[in-house]
Amino acid sequence: MRNQLRAALYLLLHDAYLKGAVAITALLPLASALVTLIPGVSPITFESVLASAVGAANFGASFAMAGLVAHDLASGGLRAACLAPRGRLRYVASRAVLAGVVSVALMLWAVVVAAVLLVFPGVYVGHPDALAELVGVIGVRVLVAWAYAAIAMLLTWASRRERGMGGVFLISLAVSAGILGLLVQMLPVMVAQLFSQELGSALLDGLRAVLLYPLVESFAVVDPLRSVALPLVYVAVASALSCRLWARRAV
């Protein structure tokens, strides 16, 4: 496992998708900070710059990991990982663990970028007393980004087809922007509402409780236990499904 993880990290550091994720995480908050330089535009808070950077990092983690596994699929390189003791299992496990590492690294990068952007005259700290709470928010965002990356990898693997940059971008966006979550929620709710309004409402509440995107709707920790446990459950389930997918697939 350690060997597979080292190799996965080596590949990731040579991968263009990671560079793209790092760039996106920096460019999005930079753009919002640059806007404040335009005369007449109102200053913005550090918290909103940070939210922008963290949102980009959230997407970036899915983008980097889906891109890495797309490269695994596009070439015969995947075979190098499978041709090792317990290769298939360790291949999936190494990618799952690496997704967590990438999520942490990109979130830290997002915090650094947001802090650096404080040098802009139009960026100021809105709530100095609430800075400590941001640590908890960032922690939850790391877990959610990890879960999204695990889902994005599962979808890329399951698609079986070689994905280019466009495909990876769409998968990452659909997962990390909550589009997929909304679809998963709305479709059954719409069907349920055909039969009963109450059933539709109950289903909506039930699904919101088990979906990830409500956890990141606001820049605050609403339910600490659910915010920690739910992403971890998603990582575990996505990894288990990925293992099952690879257990008998020809490479």
Partner: peptide, 18 residues
Amino acid sequence: AVYGRLDAFENLMNRALI
């Protein structure tokens, strides 16, 4: 079993690390 966007040595390094 190679990654097309890596060079020969990098591909070997990946396998050697695995």
